[in-house]
């Protein structure tokens, strides 16, 4: 029996917009085991982005149960959540979100700076992570000297470097051409093969076909949850 990485039960997130109450998440339950590769789908306003923010501990749920790798995250305050983001979660964003003034390796080192890893070890681990995503040659380059696909690979290296419990990817291929999309998906699939648990938000059904399981959101609820039967392998596609 593999470990439960995400355990969410009856999770609610309500916003008030003026006098109207928006039910962004309205009683979602979800369980993700270690080693899964889940895509969350849905149209805009379905609640998938809110789900991502709550999963990423950037946002606090209004109500419900949320355990991440056995930790009761729903009860944590700002500082506790920051620590979870630092150690348990690796974020990959649509817009890469690298710091433009820092080189690739410095960007990858940053999460370790916040977790107090000694500088020498940071450097070692960061170059290993960049090697894993195939960017050893461009470690000293600034983000604006890299292509979109390369930037996203730096972001993935940064997400991996603290060995998180889950990788959260929010439309990671949204800003990429199809060739780079294959490359990034390929990296995710390989990381998943090596045991990484990945949750990816996407609105592209094609991209979702590369994952192992698709959860569809609508109006703040998970309306379907199915296993991908004929999973596509990106490496084979690229040949």
């Amino acid at each position: 029996m593999s470990k439960v990485m995400i355990q969410i039960e009856n999770l609610k997130k309500y916003y008030s917009q003026g006098s109207i109450q928006v039910k962004a998440l309205d009683g979602v339950s979800l369980r993700v085991q270690e080693g899964e590769f889940v895509s969350i789908m849905g149209s805009s306003g379905s609640g998938k982005s809110t789900m991502m923010n709550v999963l990423g501990c950037l946002d606090k749920p209004t109500d419900g149960i949320f355990f991440l790798d056995g930790i009761d995250v729903a009860k944590l305050k700002d500082t506790g959540l920051a620590e979870i983001r630092n150690k348990k979660i690796g974020f990959v964003f649509q817009t890469f979100n690298l710091l433009p003034k820092l080189s690739a390796i410095e960007n990858v080192e940053l999460p370790m700076a916040y977790s107090g890893v000694p500088i020498k070890e940071r450097h070692k681990r960061a170059s290993e992570a960049l090697k894993r995503v195939g960017l050893s040659e461009r470690m000293k380059h600034k983000p604006n000297e890299l292509s979109g696909g390369q930037r996203q690979r730096v972001a993935i290296a940064r997400a991996l470097v603290n060995e998180p419990s889950i990788l959260l990817a929010d439309e990671p291929t949204g800003n990429l051409d199809s060739k780079s999309t294959f490359e990034i998906i390929d990296i995710f699939q390989k990381l998943n093969d090596e045991g990484a648990t990945i949750v990816m938000v996407t609105h592209e059904p094609d991209v979702a076909q590369y994952t192992k399981r698709i959860v569809t959101f609508k109006d703040g609820k998970a309306i379907s949850d199915e296993i991908v039967k004929n999973r596509i392998i990106a490496e084979e596609e690229m040949k």
Partner: peptide, 15 residues
Amino acid sequence: REIGIRKSIGAKNKD
């Protein structure tokens, strides 16, 4: 945005 990025990768408020 930089502050958002730093927070998302684990910077605490005091950092």
